[in-house]
Design a binder for these strands. Structure first.
Lengths: 187, 187
DNA sequence: TTATTTATCGAATTATTATTCGAAATTTAG
DNA sequence: CTAAATTTCGAATAATAATTCGATAAATAA
Protein backbone atom coordinates (compact mmCIF):
# COMPACT_ATOMS: atom_id res chain seq x y z
CA UNK A 1 0.00 0.00 0.00
CA UNK A 2 0.95 3.63 -0.55
CA UNK A 3 1.23 4.50 3.09
CA UNK A 4 3.57 1.61 3.68
CA UNK A 5 5.81 2.75 0.87
CA UNK A 6 6.00 6.24 2.26
CA UNK A 7 6.72 4.95 5.72
CA UNK A 8 9.51 2.75 4.42
CA UNK A 9 11.10 5.63 2.56
CA UNK A 10 10.73 7.89 5.54
CA UNK A 11 12.40 5.37 7.81
CA UNK A 12 15.41 5.24 5.53
CA UNK A 13 15.71 8.99 5.52
CA UNK A 14 15.12 9.39 9.24
CA UNK A 15 17.82 6.87 9.93
CA UNK A 16 20.25 8.45 7.51
CA UNK A 17 19.77 12.08 8.49
CA UNK A 18 18.26 12.03 11.93
CA UNK A 19 14.80 13.20 12.82
CA UNK A 20 15.39 16.81 11.92
CA UNK A 21 17.93 16.32 9.22
CA UNK A 22 15.27 14.46 7.31
CA UNK A 23 13.39 16.68 4.86
CA UNK A 24 10.08 16.00 3.25
CA UNK A 25 11.81 16.41 -0.10
CA UNK A 26 14.15 13.56 0.59
CA UNK A 27 11.40 11.41 2.01
CA UNK A 28 9.41 12.03 -1.15
CA UNK A 29 12.35 10.95 -3.28
CA UNK A 30 13.12 7.92 -1.19
CA UNK A 31 9.56 6.71 -1.37
CA UNK A 32 9.10 7.54 -5.02
CA UNK A 33 6.34 10.11 -4.69
CA UNK A 34 6.05 13.81 -5.19
CA UNK A 35 6.36 15.90 -2.09
CA UNK A 36 2.75 17.00 -2.15
CA UNK A 37 1.58 13.43 -2.25
CA UNK A 38 2.98 12.83 1.19
CA UNK A 39 0.51 15.37 2.47
CA UNK A 40 -2.27 13.56 0.74
CA UNK A 41 -1.61 10.59 2.98
CA UNK A 42 -0.23 12.22 6.09
CA UNK A 43 -1.11 15.38 7.91
CA UNK A 44 2.45 16.43 8.62
CA UNK A 45 6.02 15.30 8.95
CA UNK A 46 5.44 14.54 12.59
CA UNK A 47 2.47 12.47 11.60
CA UNK A 48 4.74 10.37 9.39
CA UNK A 49 7.12 9.73 12.25
CA UNK A 50 4.31 8.82 14.58
CA UNK A 51 2.91 6.43 12.02
CA UNK A 52 6.24 4.62 11.72
CA UNK A 53 6.47 4.25 15.46
CA UNK A 54 2.89 3.24 16.02
CA UNK A 55 2.99 0.69 13.26
CA UNK A 56 6.25 -0.73 14.57
CA UNK A 57 5.27 -1.05 18.20
CA UNK A 58 1.84 -2.31 17.35
CA UNK A 59 3.28 -5.10 15.25
CA UNK A 60 5.74 -6.10 17.94
CA UNK A 61 2.98 -6.18 20.45
CA UNK A 62 0.65 -8.22 18.30
CA UNK A 63 3.33 -10.76 17.53
CA UNK A 64 3.98 -11.11 21.25
CA UNK A 65 0.44 -11.58 22.40
CA UNK A 66 0.22 -15.28 21.58
CA UNK A 67 3.58 -15.93 23.19
CA UNK A 68 2.44 -14.26 26.37
CA UNK A 69 -0.98 -15.86 26.35
CA UNK A 70 0.48 -19.33 25.93
CA UNK A 71 1.12 -19.77 29.63
CA UNK A 72 4.42 -21.39 30.50
CA UNK A 73 6.90 -20.87 33.27
CA UNK A 74 8.12 -17.28 33.59
CA UNK A 75 11.58 -18.19 32.41
CA UNK A 76 10.31 -20.08 29.37
CA UNK A 77 7.94 -17.30 28.46
CA UNK A 78 10.67 -14.79 28.97
CA UNK A 79 12.97 -16.63 26.61
CA UNK A 80 10.21 -16.90 24.03
CA UNK A 81 9.47 -13.21 24.28
CA UNK A 82 13.07 -12.33 23.62
CA UNK A 83 13.19 -14.72 20.70
CA UNK A 84 10.06 -13.24 19.23
CA UNK A 85 11.42 -9.73 19.52
CA UNK A 86 14.62 -10.81 17.84
CA UNK A 87 12.53 -12.36 15.10
CA UNK A 88 10.72 -9.09 14.55
CA UNK A 89 13.99 -7.26 14.45
CA UNK A 90 15.40 -9.55 11.83
CA UNK A 91 12.34 -9.39 9.63
CA UNK A 92 12.42 -5.63 9.42
CA UNK A 93 16.03 -4.69 9.85
CA UNK A 94 16.66 -1.11 10.73
CA UNK A 95 13.20 -0.48 12.07
CA UNK A 96 13.73 -1.88 15.50
CA UNK A 97 16.88 -0.12 16.39
CA UNK A 98 14.97 2.97 15.44
CA UNK A 99 12.01 2.06 17.61
CA UNK A 100 14.18 1.53 20.62
CA UNK A 101 16.32 4.61 20.21
CA UNK A 102 14.01 7.30 18.91
CA UNK A 103 12.14 7.83 22.15
CA UNK A 104 15.31 9.24 23.62
CA UNK A 105 15.34 11.95 20.97
CA UNK A 106 11.81 13.28 21.10
CA UNK A 107 9.23 14.65 23.49
CA UNK A 108 6.90 11.78 24.15
CA UNK A 109 3.53 13.13 25.04
CA UNK A 110 0.30 11.63 23.87
CA UNK A 111 2.27 9.38 21.59
CA UNK A 112 -0.14 6.61 20.70
CA UNK A 113 2.63 4.02 20.40
CA UNK A 114 3.83 4.71 23.92
CA UNK A 115 1.14 2.45 25.26
CA UNK A 116 2.40 -0.59 23.40
CA UNK A 117 5.96 0.11 24.40
CA UNK A 118 4.88 0.30 28.01
CA UNK A 119 2.90 -2.88 27.79
CA UNK A 120 5.94 -4.69 26.49
CA UNK A 121 8.20 -3.35 29.19
CA UNK A 122 5.76 -4.14 31.91
CA UNK A 123 5.29 -7.68 30.65
CA UNK A 124 9.04 -8.19 30.75
CA UNK A 125 9.33 -6.72 34.21
CA UNK A 126 6.47 -8.91 35.32
CA UNK A 127 8.11 -12.04 33.97
CA UNK A 128 11.33 -11.19 35.74
CA UNK A 129 9.50 -10.63 38.99
CA UNK A 130 7.55 -13.85 38.69
CA UNK A 131 10.67 -15.74 37.80
CA UNK A 132 12.44 -14.45 40.87
CA UNK A 133 9.46 -15.33 43.04
CA UNK A 134 9.20 -18.82 41.64
CA UNK A 135 12.92 -19.31 42.04
CA UNK A 136 13.61 -19.71 38.34
CA UNK A 137 15.74 -16.62 38.43
CA UNK A 138 18.17 -15.88 41.21
CA UNK A 139 17.10 -13.29 43.71
CA UNK A 140 18.19 -10.18 41.87
CA UNK A 141 16.38 -6.90 41.81
CA UNK A 142 14.25 -7.32 38.68
CA UNK A 143 14.74 -3.68 37.75
CA UNK A 144 18.47 -4.10 37.59
CA UNK A 145 18.12 -7.29 35.64
CA UNK A 146 15.83 -5.49 33.24
CA UNK A 147 18.39 -2.81 32.57
CA UNK A 148 21.28 -5.18 32.19
CA UNK A 149 19.33 -7.38 29.85
CA UNK A 150 18.34 -4.35 27.84
CA UNK A 151 21.93 -3.63 27.02
CA UNK A 152 22.81 -7.23 26.34
CA UNK A 153 19.83 -8.03 24.26
CA UNK A 154 20.20 -4.97 22.07
CA UNK A 155 23.75 -6.06 21.57
CA UNK A 156 22.76 -9.53 20.54
CA UNK A 157 20.07 -8.46 18.11
CA UNK A 158 21.19 -5.17 16.68
CA UNK A 159 24.90 -5.02 16.81
CA UNK A 160 25.95 -8.17 15.12
CA UNK A 161 25.22 -8.45 11.45
CA UNK A 162 24.06 -11.98 12.03
CA UNK A 163 21.70 -13.37 9.46
CA UNK A 164 20.62 -16.46 11.36
CA UNK A 165 17.58 -16.19 13.59
CA UNK A 166 18.18 -15.89 17.30
CA UNK A 167 17.51 -19.23 18.92
CA UNK A 168 16.50 -20.15 22.42
CA UNK A 169 20.04 -21.48 22.80
CA UNK A 170 21.31 -17.96 22.20
CA UNK A 171 18.95 -16.47 24.69
CA UNK A 172 19.68 -19.11 27.29
CA UNK A 173 23.36 -18.44 26.82
CA UNK A 174 22.69 -14.79 27.35
CA UNK A 175 20.81 -15.49 30.52
CA UNK A 176 23.44 -17.82 31.82
CA UNK A 177 26.21 -15.42 31.10
CA UNK A 178 24.37 -12.80 33.00
CA UNK A 179 22.68 -14.59 35.80
CA UNK A 180 22.94 -18.05 37.11
CA UNK A 181 19.88 -20.20 36.93
CA UNK A 182 19.76 -21.84 40.36
CA UNK A 183 17.78 -24.80 39.01
CA UNK A 184 20.54 -25.86 36.67
CA UNK A 185 23.95 -26.97 37.75
CA UNK A 186 26.82 -25.61 35.72
CA UNK A 187 30.28 -26.96 35.38
CA UNK B 1 33.47 32.94 32.38
CA UNK B 2 31.09 34.02 29.63
CA UNK B 3 31.45 30.90 27.57
CA UNK B 4 30.65 28.72 30.53
CA UNK B 5 27.51 30.69 31.23
CA UNK B 6 26.33 30.29 27.68
CA UNK B 7 27.11 26.60 27.71
CA UNK B 8 25.18 26.13 30.92
CA UNK B 9 22.15 27.93 29.54
CA UNK B 10 22.39 26.03 26.31
CA UNK B 11 22.50 22.71 28.13
CA UNK B 12 19.29 23.56 29.96
CA UNK B 13 17.55 24.46 26.74
CA UNK B 14 18.89 21.47 24.82
CA UNK B 15 17.67 19.18 27.53
CA UNK B 16 14.29 20.81 27.74
CA UNK B 17 13.53 21.10 24.04
CA UNK B 18 15.78 18.61 22.34
CA UNK B 19 18.60 19.44 19.99
CA UNK B 20 16.41 20.96 17.33
CA UNK B 21 13.66 22.25 19.51
CA UNK B 22 16.25 24.47 21.13
CA UNK B 23 16.41 27.93 19.56
CA UNK B 24 19.17 30.44 19.85
CA UNK B 25 16.61 32.87 21.24
CA UNK B 26 15.85 30.64 24.14
CA UNK B 27 19.49 29.86 24.73
CA UNK B 28 20.17 33.57 24.81
CA UNK B 29 17.45 34.07 27.41
CA UNK B 30 18.51 31.13 29.50
CA UNK B 31 22.09 32.32 29.63
CA UNK B 32 21.20 35.96 30.15
CA UNK B 33 22.74 37.36 26.98
CA UNK B 34 21.41 38.87 23.80
CA UNK B 35 21.12 36.57 20.87
CA UNK B 36 23.86 38.26 18.91
CA UNK B 37 26.25 37.85 21.79
CA UNK B 38 26.14 34.12 21.41
CA UNK B 39 27.67 34.58 18.01
CA UNK B 40 30.39 36.68 19.48
CA UNK B 41 31.54 33.66 21.42
CA UNK B 42 30.49 30.80 19.18
CA UNK B 43 30.47 30.34 15.47
CA UNK B 44 27.11 28.65 15.28
CA UNK B 45 24.50 26.71 17.15
CA UNK B 46 26.25 23.50 16.28
CA UNK B 47 29.43 24.96 17.65
CA UNK B 48 27.69 25.52 20.97
CA UNK B 49 26.59 21.92 21.13
CA UNK B 50 30.03 20.68 20.25
CA UNK B 51 31.54 22.84 22.95
CA UNK B 52 29.23 21.36 25.59
CA UNK B 53 30.15 17.88 24.54
CA UNK B 54 33.85 18.47 24.23
CA UNK B 55 34.04 20.20 27.56
CA UNK B 56 32.09 17.43 29.23
CA UNK B 57 34.03 14.50 27.83
CA UNK B 58 37.32 16.23 28.33
CA UNK B 59 36.60 16.78 32.00
CA UNK B 60 35.52 13.20 32.51
CA UNK B 61 38.67 12.01 30.87
CA UNK B 62 40.94 14.27 32.85
CA UNK B 63 39.38 13.22 36.12
CA UNK B 64 39.90 9.59 35.16
CA UNK B 65 43.54 9.80 34.17
CA UNK B 66 44.95 9.63 37.68
CA UNK B 67 42.66 6.75 38.56
CA UNK B 68 43.84 4.83 35.55
CA UNK B 69 47.48 5.71 36.03
CA UNK B 70 47.43 4.60 39.64
CA UNK B 71 47.99 0.95 38.77
CA UNK B 72 45.99 -1.50 40.78
CA UNK B 73 44.29 -4.76 39.94
CA UNK B 74 41.92 -4.54 36.99
CA UNK B 75 38.92 -5.07 39.19
CA UNK B 76 39.97 -2.40 41.69
CA UNK B 77 40.74 0.06 38.94
CA UNK B 78 37.49 -0.76 37.28
CA UNK B 79 35.55 -0.05 40.44
CA UNK B 80 37.40 3.21 40.92
CA UNK B 81 36.69 4.26 37.37
CA UNK B 82 33.00 3.71 37.83
CA UNK B 83 33.05 5.59 41.10
CA UNK B 84 34.83 8.48 39.52
CA UNK B 85 32.35 8.65 36.69
CA UNK B 86 29.51 8.62 39.16
CA UNK B 87 31.22 11.44 41.01
CA UNK B 88 31.41 13.48 37.85
CA UNK B 89 27.78 12.81 37.17
CA UNK B 90 26.73 13.98 40.59
CA UNK B 91 28.78 17.14 40.45
CA UNK B 92 27.18 18.30 37.25
CA UNK B 93 23.77 16.78 37.24
CA UNK B 94 22.04 16.78 33.91
CA UNK B 95 25.21 17.08 31.90
CA UNK B 96 26.21 13.46 31.98
CA UNK B 97 22.97 11.93 30.96
CA UNK B 98 23.17 14.32 28.06
CA UNK B 99 26.71 13.29 27.22
CA UNK B 100 25.80 9.65 27.11
CA UNK B 101 22.59 10.01 25.18
CA UNK B 102 23.19 12.76 22.66
CA UNK B 103 25.46 10.75 20.42
CA UNK B 104 22.48 8.64 19.48
CA UNK B 105 20.74 11.69 18.11
CA UNK B 106 23.39 13.27 15.92
CA UNK B 107 25.75 12.51 13.10
CA UNK B 108 29.08 11.97 14.77
CA UNK B 109 31.74 12.81 12.29
CA UNK B 110 34.85 14.69 13.12
CA UNK B 111 33.44 15.38 16.52
CA UNK B 112 36.43 16.35 18.62
CA UNK B 113 34.93 14.89 21.80
CA UNK B 114 34.51 11.51 20.17
CA UNK B 115 38.13 10.74 20.89
CA UNK B 116 37.73 11.09 24.63
CA UNK B 117 34.60 9.05 24.63
CA UNK B 118 36.41 6.32 22.77
CA UNK B 119 39.36 6.42 25.10
CA UNK B 120 37.06 5.94 28.03
CA UNK B 121 35.24 3.05 26.44
CA UNK B 122 38.42 1.36 25.41
CA UNK B 123 39.89 1.70 28.88
CA UNK B 124 36.82 0.05 30.33
CA UNK B 125 36.89 -2.73 27.79
CA UNK B 126 40.55 -3.20 28.50
CA UNK B 127 39.98 -3.47 32.22
CA UNK B 128 37.28 -6.04 31.67
CA UNK B 129 39.54 -8.07 29.42
CA UNK B 130 42.43 -7.92 31.82
CA UNK B 131 40.18 -8.81 34.70
CA UNK B 132 38.94 -11.86 32.86
CA UNK B 133 42.49 -12.90 32.00
CA UNK B 134 43.70 -12.48 35.55
CA UNK B 135 40.71 -14.39 36.85
CA UNK B 136 39.27 -11.50 38.78
CA UNK B 137 36.22 -11.56 36.60
CA UNK B 138 34.54 -14.75 35.53
CA UNK B 139 35.13 -15.86 32.01
CA UNK B 140 32.49 -13.81 30.28
CA UNK B 141 32.76 -12.17 26.92
CA UNK B 142 33.99 -8.69 27.90
CA UNK B 143 31.88 -7.09 25.23
CA UNK B 144 28.73 -8.50 26.66
CA UNK B 145 29.76 -7.52 30.13
CA UNK B 146 30.42 -4.02 28.86
CA UNK B 147 26.94 -3.69 27.47
CA UNK B 148 25.23 -5.13 30.48
CA UNK B 149 27.18 -2.89 32.80
CA UNK B 150 26.33 0.07 30.65
CA UNK B 151 22.66 -0.41 31.31
CA UNK B 152 23.12 -1.11 34.99
CA UNK B 153 25.50 1.66 35.69
CA UNK B 154 23.41 4.26 33.95
CA UNK B 155 20.54 3.07 36.08
CA UNK B 156 22.54 3.42 39.24
CA UNK B 157 23.83 6.87 38.52
CA UNK B 158 21.19 8.59 36.47
CA UNK B 159 17.86 7.09 37.29
CA UNK B 160 17.69 7.28 41.00
CA UNK B 161 17.46 10.72 42.55
CA UNK B 162 20.08 9.74 45.05
CA UNK B 163 22.01 12.56 46.63
CA UNK B 164 24.69 10.47 48.30
CA UNK B 165 27.84 9.74 46.38
CA UNK B 166 28.20 6.33 44.84
CA UNK B 167 30.53 4.25 46.97
CA UNK B 168 32.70 1.30 46.14
CA UNK B 169 30.19 -0.76 48.12
CA UNK B 170 27.55 0.23 45.59
CA UNK B 171 29.73 -0.66 42.67
CA UNK B 172 30.80 -3.95 44.19
CA UNK B 173 27.17 -4.77 44.78
CA UNK B 174 26.49 -3.99 41.18
CA UNK B 175 29.26 -6.26 40.06
CA UNK B 176 28.16 -9.06 42.32
CA UNK B 177 24.60 -8.80 41.25
CA UNK B 178 25.67 -9.04 37.70
CA UNK B 179 28.56 -11.42 37.71
CA UNK B 180 29.97 -13.68 40.27
CA UNK B 181 33.46 -12.95 41.41
CA UNK B 182 35.09 -16.37 41.48
CA UNK B 183 37.64 -15.26 44.07
CA UNK B 184 34.97 -14.57 46.65
CA UNK B 185 32.65 -17.16 48.09
CA UNK B 186 29.07 -16.12 48.49
CA UNK B 187 26.43 -17.59 50.72
C1' DT C 1 39.99 62.79 29.09
C1' DT C 2 39.78 60.74 24.71
C1' DA C 3 40.77 57.05 21.49
C1' DT C 4 40.61 52.28 20.81
C1' DT C 5 39.35 47.88 21.57
C1' DT C 6 36.13 44.57 23.38
C1' DA C 7 31.31 43.26 24.45
C1' DT C 8 26.58 43.59 23.90
C1' DC C 9 22.33 43.93 21.70
C1' DG C 10 17.63 44.06 18.99
C1' DA C 11 16.31 44.48 14.52
C1' DA C 12 16.89 43.13 9.76
C1' DT C 13 18.26 39.51 6.66
C1' DT C 14 18.62 34.96 4.84
C1' DA C 15 18.12 30.20 4.45
C1' DT C 16 15.81 26.37 5.05
C1' DT C 17 11.90 23.59 4.77
C1' DA C 18 7.28 22.41 6.09
C1' DT C 19 2.95 23.13 4.16
C1' DT C 20 -0.52 24.61 0.76
C1' DC C 21 -2.19 25.52 -4.01
C1' DG C 22 -4.04 24.78 -8.34
C1' DA C 23 -3.59 22.26 -12.09
C1' DA C 24 -3.04 17.80 -14.36
C1' DA C 25 -3.26 12.89 -14.67
C1' DT C 26 -5.35 8.65 -13.48
C1' DT C 27 -8.91 5.75 -11.95
C1' DT C 28 -13.70 4.54 -11.18
C1' DA C 29 -18.66 4.61 -12.09
C1' DG C 30 -22.56 5.21 -15.02
C1' DC D 1 -17.28 7.14 -23.79
C1' DT D 2 -17.99 10.88 -20.29
C1' DA D 3 -18.26 12.73 -15.74
C1' DA D 4 -17.03 12.50 -11.24
C1' DA D 5 -13.88 11.28 -7.81
C1' DT D 6 -9.31 10.14 -6.48
C1' DT D 7 -4.41 10.58 -6.78
C1' DT D 8 -0.36 12.90 -8.13
C1' DC D 9 2.68 16.64 -8.61
C1' DG D 10 6.05 20.86 -8.95
C1' DA D 11 5.80 25.44 -7.99
C1' DA D 12 4.36 29.05 -4.80
C1' DT D 13 3.73 30.34 0.06
C1' DA D 14 4.52 30.73 4.91
C1' DA D 15 6.81 29.94 9.06
C1' DT D 16 10.53 29.34 11.63
C1' DA D 17 14.77 30.18 13.30
C1' DA D 18 19.80 30.64 12.28
C1' DT D 19 22.90 34.16 11.19
C1' DT D 20 24.53 38.87 10.23
C1' DC D 21 24.28 44.01 10.66
C1' DG D 22 24.89 48.36 12.38
C1' DA D 23 24.67 50.54 16.00
C1' DT D 24 25.73 51.33 21.20
C1' DA D 25 27.78 50.62 25.58
C1' DA D 26 31.63 49.25 28.62
C1' DA D 27 36.14 48.53 29.50
C1' DT D 28 41.01 49.56 28.69
C1' DA D 29 44.93 52.28 27.40
C1' DA D 30 47.31 56.58 26.24
Amino acid sequence: MRKERILAGALQVFKKNGLDGATMDEIANASGFGKATLYYYFKSKEDVLTAILLDGWLKIWESLEPVIANQQSPRKTFVNVLIKIAENAQNRPGLFEFLFNVPKAIKIENQPWKEYQERLYSVIRGLLEDGVKSGEFPNINPNLMFKALGGLFMGLVFMGDREEPVTDKDVEKLLNQLITDPTISHN
